[in-house]
Amino acid sequence: MESVLSPAASSTAPRRRKRFQSWKWAPYIFISPFVIIFAIFGAFPLIFSATLSFAQWDPAAGFGAIKWIQLDNYKFVLTDRWFWKSLGNTVYIALASGLPQHLVAIPFAAFLSTLLRGRNIVLGAYFLPFITSSVAISLIFSSLFSKDFGAINAILMSLHDHLPLIGQLLPDHKVDWLQNTEMVKPTVSFVVFWRYVGWNTVLYLAAMQTIPEDLYEAATLDGASITRQFWHITLPMIRPMMFFAVSLTLINNLQLFEEPFILLGDNGGTGQAAMTTAMYMYRTAFYFSDFGTACAISWVMFVIIAVLSYGNNRLFKLAGGED
């Protein structure tokens, strides 16, 4: 067969192939940075943690120490008192910080959208916590909420003494916001609420600004008061954004870690009252060196978040009459 190839053909073929190949590979080279980074930091941990969740492994002992134990990690997690407690804490804080976030952000955004001037300054002020480091925020709040020297107790005490009537409703002793088991969860929830309310306001304001002005004019002519317009025009029109914002809150709050971790330390405060599931997972991995169980916890959380997000999706679709 070799003799059949003409000299001309064999001399042009390699040259053409070379040019063709560099052209062919160029696109892959351009997209390779993303693919490589995603493979290392995205796909690999995902697959590795899924694998590990079926194994017992102390990383200090090397890869040889991986022992396959099937579903034992999951069985353990689902019967673990501490897991359920941390999940309870997480759900408590998620609701106590998440619900008010939206209940405040929506009317607040509606108010801001009526402001003609100063809107961006107010918005910026509320958005600031979102872009501030959570370490700085937690440090500030640690000092504000401090029992003996904190500004919050000082203000409450003085209001108790000097404000007539409602002053009596305020506590007459210094509240131990960060140590008292009863107070820890509300305190953490407040910080989380405070941090994200501005973000949600920005989302809702953006949605409200896309509502055409003539809808409100038509509603005015139809006899709708400002509150009726809010109910019948604004709320239905921002429904897609509500779905998006609530989904984000759901996903973020169920993975809550930084604020309680820095505010209360790695054990989640007195009696682990504010130890979230994410913190528990962190402790399981890095304190108890039980990576298999930690991976199982994260996958259980994944399922919970996925189910709740789906439920959220259905809820919004139902409320909007499915369109």
């Binding site: 809808l215 038509a218 509603a219 429904r239 909007g320």
Partner: peptide, 9 residues
């Protein structure tokens, strides 16, 4: 209105 201004929802 020129834009109709119907309530979309």
């Amino acid at each position: 209105f020129q834009s109709y201004a119907l309530y979309p929802h």
